[in-house]
């Protein structure tokens, strides 16, 4: 049973992390895909910027202003990356839309689970959790890797740096997921805009090896 679970985890990680799985550059882009990519990227990036900055920013004097600017920054990255990806590879945008949909669904289910337990959680909060899930789902590889890195960094700092407490560690993990997902958008855009003839040799990948 444990082996099967491990195998499942390994399988999921490999699918998420294998750079080859994302190499489907045979199709070209289109105006429609560029618009869809820009819209999806803007939404995902702005949401990731918001999510990732909430905890760190509320530890500063600027608070919501800092969150707002992070949302602008994330939205701009997502918008430009999404537009570039869509203009070059409409399949990649289709995949991003699909995974965003899956992320939205997972978020909504999580919201529905929380709703009867937590106080003051309404339908709009269920939708908000869904929207967060969708934003992460649009760039899942980077989000997973970023979450892992952020968690390790946050945990390590919380054990070694005085004044870096539990909220900071949680913030580091969430920020890691957001930064990872935004990086995923950028990497995908760079890959999509490269010359397909040279992609097999010059492609940027996020190197990950998982050993058990």
């Amino acid at each position: 049973m444990i082996h099967r679970n491990r195998a499942t985890v390994v399988g999921i990680l490999l699918v998420l992390c294998n750079p080859g799985a994302a190499v489907c550059q045979e199709t070209s882009g289109s105006t429609g895909a560029a618009i869809a990519g820009a819209a999806l990227g803007a939404y995902s990036g702005a949401m990731l910027g918001t999510m990732g900055s909430i905890v760190p920013c509320t530890q500063t004097y600027w608070g919501a202003k800092c969150v707002g600017w992070s949302a602008v920054f994330g939205g701009a990255i997502g918008l430009s990356s999404g537009a570039v990806i869509g203009a070059n590879d409409s399949d990649e945008i289709k995949r991003a839309v699909e995974t965003a949909g899956i992320g939205f669904g997972i978020g909504v289910v999580a919201g529905l689970v929380i709703k009867p337990i937590a106080q003051r959680v309404g339908w709009q909060d269920v939708a908000a959790v869904g929207l967060m899930g969708g934003a992460v789902g649009a760039a899942p590889k980077g989000a997973v890797i970023g979450l892992g890195v952020g968690t390790v960094v946050g945990f390590t700092l919380s054990r070694t740096v005085d004044g870096f407490n539990l909220p900071d560690a949680v913030g580091a993990a969430i920020a890691g997921a957001a930064v990872g997902a935004l990086t995923d958008w950028v990497v995908s855009a760079i890959n999509a805009s490269g010359d397909p003839a040279t992609q097999s040799g010059a492609r940027i990948t996020i190197p990950v090896s998982v050993r058990f």
Partner: peptide, 30 residues
């Protein structure tokens, strides 16, 4: 192959995308 798009089309595309982005931003962090 990347598709070749006319400049006007690109401009409209960016305007729409900017609008969507601005909408998203105004909904968060205020």
């Amino acid at each position: 192959m990347p598709s070749a798009m006319p400049a006007a089309s690109l401009g409209r595309r960016h305007n729409r995308a900017t609008l969507i982005s601005a909408l998203g931003v105004t909904l968060s962090g205020c």
